[in-house]
Design a binder for these strands. Structure first.
Lengths: 216, 216
DNA sequence: CCTACCGATCGGTAGG
DNA sequence: CCTACCGATCGGTAGG
């Protein structure tokens, strides 16, 4: 929709270089400005005039690139979702045992989420201010790619109890996403004592072995 | 702030009866109207005029009860938080074994959250539209009551691996809150197949025993 | 890409 | 002097 790959016209060069047109650069400036403001203020509290000012444009100029405020949000939602990074990662992650695989995938998930501290907020804006009306589209686009990627876990079938792959996926995402969320909220508060250094290891261990003592 | 307990003046009666004044009833109508609109539209997308209309008042009348729109939100946030119901429940829940206790507390948590389908959204509005500026106050008020309540779990110490109580609490809330959230989103979509009927049982089982096979 | 605007609506407050 | 409201309007801003 927004970024065509331009090539340098110089005949002496065989190298393709991303050479954004003026329109593409303006488009990018609008998306960046809007993204920063949405994260700070939410969607409805952010005005088109704020976006225009931060992008270095007049208000009316935005409408040369996006037909509405909502379309800007939708473009950001698709662009910032980390599934493009996370799904390939799950498919390629190695590990001799299920422990190693769970650990490496969970670490990668947390790392990717930490690398995008604002992604969570983007999803919350979608839920709160749009009543989640873009979610079905998003899930329909991602779920078919996620389930096969996670089914890879079944290659460790000999180490696993017979649990439905979808429940494996839900409990995995739920447990580690909650680790991420609680860690994020707690990290810079007096409640940091609720987050012992080895919390991540314990979450992995709980996912694999539960909280009960093994029968001796 | 809003509800004084009025008593019937009838001398022949010793029974105290909640007899809201007109002001209290108006106050209640404003809070209810604002709550419903915030849940549907979020905070910034809801106008004081909408609140007034739904409460059956003129716009200006609201300001006899609340000094600003934001103060209305703050009152709702404190009033609707389920910790008042959930914490006593965790303290009194019975169970001979840790399995029974976890199951009954998790069931009660899910039931309470299902009984308040909008509580989650209220917290999300706080995060998205207020940047969580009321959260520290909320956590400071609730955490000291939650940790002791959950420490009760340690009475089953002989059945548990040595895990820090705070991590027990975080993983418990995280896992079952995520069950609730995913269940809520999935229930009425074509993705319902991701939610086998026994999902709750499996979540309990994963929390207690993990996903690994027990060593034979 | 800008200036200049529109119909409407925003949160909050005036006097009575 | 209080409450609970009214009709009207304040200075600014909304998406387009």
């Amino acid at each position: 929709m927004f970024f065509s790959e331009a090539k340098i016209k110089n005949e002496r060069s065989f190298i393709k270089i991303e050479m954004p047109t003026k329109a593409e650069r303006t488009c990018r400036a609008i998306l960046e400005a809007a993204y920063e403001l949405f994260m700070k203020q939410g969607y409805h509290a952010t005005s088109m005039r704020q976006i225009a000012q931060r992008a270095g444009l007049a208000l009316g100029a935005i409408y040369n690139h996006f037909p509405s405020k909502q379309k800007i949000f939708e473009a950001i939602l698709l662009e910032k979702h980390p599934y493009k990074q996370i799904l390939p990662l799950m498919a390629t992650a190695g590990g001799e045992t299920v422990e190693e695989w769970v650990r490496s995938v969970a670490e990668a998930l947390i790392a990717e989420l930490n690398h995008r501290p604002d992604f969570l907020k983007l999803m919350l804006i979608e839920i709160v201010e749009f009543n989640g009306k873009h979610v079905p589209h998003l899930v329909r686009k991602i779920a078919p790619q996620a389930l096969p990627a996670f089914a890879r876990m079944r290659t460790y079938y000999r180490d696993l109890r017979p649990i439905h792959p979808a429940v494996l996926l839900r409990s995995f995402i739920g447990l580690f996403f909650s680790y991420y969320v609680t860690d994020m909220f707690i990290r810079h508060t007096p409640l940091a004592k609720l987050a012992p250094k080895d919390s991540f290891d314990v979450f992995v261990d709980i996912y694999l072995h539960g909280i009960s003592k093994e029968p001796a």
